[in-house]
């Protein structure tokens, strides 16, 4: 039984402290947006959660390709960990988006390209977990998971492009925005600082959680192997 690495403990505590600090920045340091009001404060964590969700899916694909090339169990564990954590963060992203959309777009939900793409991503993550659950042989589970992670990863940007033919109302705060976007705003320096700090903090939390999940995955593997030894 491996002991918990010191760095992970440090990461745990820094995640907690940084998260509290970021929350403080969002509510106190960042100024209130003149047009959108207080609800705009959702934006900082909304984008940060979406960012971690996307990056986690990216990591899962890299891990999937690495697994197919090397057949090293390590990559399978990393892939599963980042997909599970990515699933949670994407869900936070969608829910916080809905909370923001209600007052600004006057609806919880709209069939906008980004919203649909986020939902499809969530469904692909869930399908990935269901696929893994249905397969008992660990090697086959890992191989199928890797293949599905690659196929799913390709499908996400494709969905975005195919829906993009419609005009979007989702604002692009970072980068150029569509003329039809509603709820767009310019960021003041304080807002920018809060925004980038939130991105940073969520990235740290994401890394921390994925690391924990990888450890859990390794322990699961260990238990499975010991069980096999006892049975044999």
């Amino acid at each position: 039984m491996e002991t918990k690495p010191r760095l992970l403990t440090i990461l745990d505590w820094s995640s907690i402290i940084l998260f509290l600090f970021a929350t403080g920045m969002v509510f106190i340091y960042a100024p209130m947006e003149a047009v959108l009001g207080n609800v705009q404060r959702v934006f900082y964590f909304h984008v940060a959660a979406g960012w971690v969700g996307m990056v986690a899916l990216g990591v899962a694909v890299v891990a999937a390709i690495a697994y197919l090339r090397t057949s090293d169990r390590k990559w399978d564990i990393i892939g599963l960990a980042s997909i599970e954590i990515g699933l949670v963060f994407s869900f936070i992203n969608i829910i916080s988006g809905a909370i923001w959309a209600r007052p600004i777009w006057n609806t919880w939900w709209t069939w906008d390209p980004r919203l649909v793409t986020a939902t499809i991503m969530e469904l692909i993550y869930l399908a990935y977990l269901m696929l893994r659950q249905g397969i008992e042989d660990p090697d086959r589970r890992a191989r199928f998971g890797a293949v599905y992670a690659i196929v799913g990863f390709l499908s996400v940007p494709l969905s975005f492009f195919s829906i993009r033919i419609w005009r979007t109302i989702h604002p692009t705060v970072v980068g150029s925005s569509d003329a039809g976007a509603e709820g767009a705003f310019d960021m003041t320096p304080r807002m920018l600082q809060t925004f980038f700090f939130s991105l940073f903090v969520f990235t740290i939390i994401g890394i921390d959680l994925i690391w924990h999940r990888i450890r859990l995955g390794r322990l699961e593997d260990d238990v499975e192997q010991r069980k096999m030894q006892v049975m044999a």
């Binding site: 499809i120 469904l123 692909i124 869930l126 399908a127 269901m130 696929l131 659950q133 249905g134 397969i135 008992e136 086959r140 199928f144 599905y148 196929v151 799913g152 499908s155 494709l158 969905s159 492009f161 195919s162 829906i163």
Partner: peptide
């Protein structure tokens, strides 16, 4: 077909991926 839940699994795997198509 290799999964325990194969009959219900295919649409769940397939539909989100073919949405763009």
């Amino acid at each position: 077909v290799y999964a325990r839940t194969r009959d219900i699994l295919l649409p769940i795997l397939l539909f989100p991926v073919v949405v763009p198509l």
